[in-house]
């Protein structure tokens, strides 16, 4: 347990001393800021689009989170690629595997460290809609639901990316593979539209469908359970993969 927290703290430090983390944060914030400004301008120019069902929180928050999902899909594989691939390449993974820590603790530790970065993304993102609270009445619940969806989605992307990172020694391959995997899970939604006998299955498995509901402020236990299962599944796969490597 303490080994896991030590790994998490150290991993968070390693992420935040790298220029990559700050570049990613800056790019995310710049693009999100841009889309926030666009959404605001659009709303001001078309005040008629707001009604009793769709308020500022919906318009700005929902729009923002919908857009950020695509951005995160592109960017999170870059944050997860190094987690195991780089350590394997440099040989420093041996440090963790020789220490009195189980593989589960190692994987969870790294994942927790990564989550600190996700929290930073989330806080920066939350600042934008909440900055409007001075000027208007916001539906905080909707924004919080959106933020929760955002966090769960980042964690899911992170878990999948972490697993792909255990498969290879090359961080770039881990990034490409992670991106491919996320895109496939994402596109399951499109496959569901095609109909056929598996369309229900595809709809349930797709990441984006579950996010849509939260984005619109619908808090459904099934969606939360989906994300938690998704995260657990990929972290479990990562542990299995590391165990196979040892034998």
């Amino acid at each position: 347990m303490s080994a896991m927290l030590s790994i998490a703290r150290h991993e968070a430090r390693r992420i935040f001393v790298s220029p990559l983390a700050w570049t990613v944060l800056a790019v995310i914030q710049f693009i999100m800021g841009l889309s926030y400004a666009l959404l605001l301008t659009e709303m001001v120019n078309n005040p008629g689009s707001l009604n009793q069902y769709s308020g500022v929180a919906d318009y700005i928050g929902g729009g923002l989170f919908g857009f950020s999902a695509v951005l995160l899909l592109l960017i999170i594989p870059l944050m997860t690629m190094r987690l195991f691939a780089e350590d394997k390449k440099s040989g420093s993974l041996t440090l963790l595997t020789t220490a009195p820590a189980s593989l589960t603790e190692i994987v969870l530790g790294k994942f927790l460290g990564l989550s600190v970065f996700f929290l930073a993304v989330l806080v920066l993102m939350a600042l934008m809609p909440f900055s409007l609270s001075g000027g208007t009445e916001l539906d905080n619940g909707r924004i919080f639901a959106g933020l929760l969806g955002q966090l769960l989605m980042m964690l899911s992307f992170g878990a999948a990316g972490l697993f792909v990172s255990t498969l290879t020694k090359e961080p770039v391959i881990a990034a490409v593979g992670g991106f491919g995997l996320l895109l496939v899970v994402w596109l399951l939604e499109a496959m569901a539209y095609g109909g056929g006998m598996f369309s229900d299955l595809f709809r349930h498995l797709s990441l984006i469908g579950h996010f849509e509901k939260l984005r619109r402020g619908v808090f459904d236990t099934a969606d939360i359970a989906y994300y938690l299962l998704f995260i657990t599944f990929f972290l479990w796969l990562a542990v299995q993969r590391l165990d196979v490597e040892r034998s």
């Binding site: 430090r13 420093s92 041996t94 440090l95």
Partner: peptide
């Protein structure tokens, strides 16, 4: 205590930070 062929160091942190982590990791 094990020193493999390649020293298992993390190039992006300082010597102090690294050794403190290793000590914590070993309880």
């Amino acid at each position: 205590g094990y020193l493999p062929e390649l020293p298992p160091v993390h190039p992006e942190v300082t010597v102090d930070e690294y050794l403190d982590f290793v000590a914590a990791l070993h309880g």
